[in-house]
Design a protein around this nucleic acid. Sequence first.
DNA 1: GACGGAGGTCTTTTT
DNA 2: GACCTCCGTC
Length: 669
Amino acid sequence: MKGVSGLNPRQKEAVLHEGGPLLILAGAGTGKTRTIAYRIARLVETGSPPESVLAVAFTNKSAGELRDRVRALLRKKKKAPLVTTFHSFCVRVLRQEIERLGYKRNFTIYDTTDQLSVVKEVAREVHVSGRDLDAKKVLWTISRAKNDGGAPDPGDGTDEYLLLASRLYPRYADALKAYNAVDFDDLLLLALRLFNTFPDVLRRWKERVRHILVDEFQDTNAVQYDLVRLLALPVGNITVVGDDDQSIYGWRGAAPGNIHSFAADWPRVKVITLDQNYRSTVGILEAANAVISKNAGRKPKKLWSNLGQGDPVRVVTCATGEDEAEAVIGRIVALLASRKCRAGECAVMFRTNAQSRLFEDVLRREKIRYVVIGGMRFYDRKEVRDLIAYLSFVFNERDEVSLLRVLNYPSRGIGRETVHRLQQESLSGGRPLTEVMRRAGSLEGIGSRQARGIADFLELIDQARSWFGPGRLSYGARRLAETVGLEDAAMRSVKDPEAGWRKAENIREVITALATFEQQEPQAGLGEYLAGVNLAGRDEEDSDSSSETVTLLTVHSAKGLEFPHVFLVGLEEDLFPHERSGADPGGMEEERRLAYVGMTRAGRTLTLTHAVGRTRWSKDMVCTPSRFLDELPEEGIEREDRRDGEEEVDLIEEDRIAEEYIKRIRARF
DNA sequence: GACGGAGGTCTTTTT
DNA sequence: GACCTCCGTC
């Protein structure tokens, strides 16, 4: 490990802090990741066994970043400490201990899509379906309650959705358990339950984990904090790092109050504040500080930088969303042409994933390589999910969601009525669906053709199970895909042959990914791969990122990252701040923190853009500039208006918007 | 009873 | 634009 000579006195103090609770209040760009990385490395170098050090972060991205830094410091001399996300750590615990809670070891992790299927299914049991059911809202309510550590509260019974959610929750939980599946929230909740219920389990993990470090502490929820607190008690070798100005996960149940109550929970705590920013120029910091200072009830603090005033922050007014993409990518093209920077130093950040498309179109046209982080994930594509569902069902035959997905895909003549009949039988007999299916031939109400299809399907899956094994994952997947004709089905599912070909390609890409995984983890089985898909699917696409690709990402996924040139786009009322942020109290302040996070990602230049008209939901809308633009300081801002002297296309576009605007005004009176 | 096409509805952020 | 539901046809 390199010495600590490159650190400032307070960073050094944090690194050298001997033991006991440590709270590091670290503003944006103050060398937070660097400081924890050094601290972890030092713990290992001064004699802590690497496996006794556990560092947890909130997102895969920040965990990965921290892991890389620690590895670089330790070189390959030592075994690396465990640097991971809360969810992955819990998977590790559960794979070893979950049988104590009555699950089987080969449990499946359900993602949001899987969860929605379960909600719809249990809602059907109580005769709520179709238009009467907002499954997303029910799921959200359940998830929110679980993040706070419990079941949804029906309240006083006047809120229809709370009532429905609390009514469906027990059925939802039972269904998951019957399918030997857990959702994201369960990962945390069940690990906590294990620690709380079985003292020997807790003791074992406490003996193993001697030092805990938590990054982005302001984003932890009640369950996550309980987990680390249990592990750290009573010795208190716990280090937490956070910044309440960067708390942007309140909507997911994060409790930024954790950061304030930390000192009360750990009386011997040492508090260290980092406020020198090593990332951004003074101009960028001043702009960001001006915006965040509009939040009430915030602990006043100011970051400082000695990187010089730098270029002014630019605010660009664009005619339309398309024009905005032209403006931003045009600027990047110019930067690249002048050889002032590489593509990898540029990032476009937006509030919602849907905004990426316009930028992608222009980037493709300009033949600039780019990566989109998140968004429509590779693993969210239908054809990919179909193959993954086959794999999931082969792995865990109780996984009913995956079973129902593949049972009649590609078509085997097993339609809705037959499936319904099977489910009915499974429910009334309390038997797993697969068991019912094995007796389908003798079941009343199931035709002989259907029974034949079911039997063939089961035989296929039984056969397929023998195709998989450590080191044979990609072989099994390829054989399975070929046998059921997945590629053909994918090609036939769309009219455009080009799109069909791409879909087939995606299926082959999953098989390639399995082959790669096999090489990296020769001992691992299907379960490890599937857990990785659901927990870290987003990181797959990151492997494409390099110094030659422009990065497109939401502000949420940008947290913890930095780029020399940042373009923060779509700064319009109802988009950023988002229209739905007004729903809960504190929503607007969270939006402002989000804007702050976005702005403080920038090192050398920051460009903020907004459009006066934008097509949303295939409707043209008039857009007012975001209030956050009004909150910028008077000085040090360079403004540009692209609506003047534009090409004809944009003028026509503008006329169209003006017309729409007039229509709206008329409609109002 | 299965399947494909047409039309209506809703769009935040992540593990 | 994506997803879901409904409806007509085989």
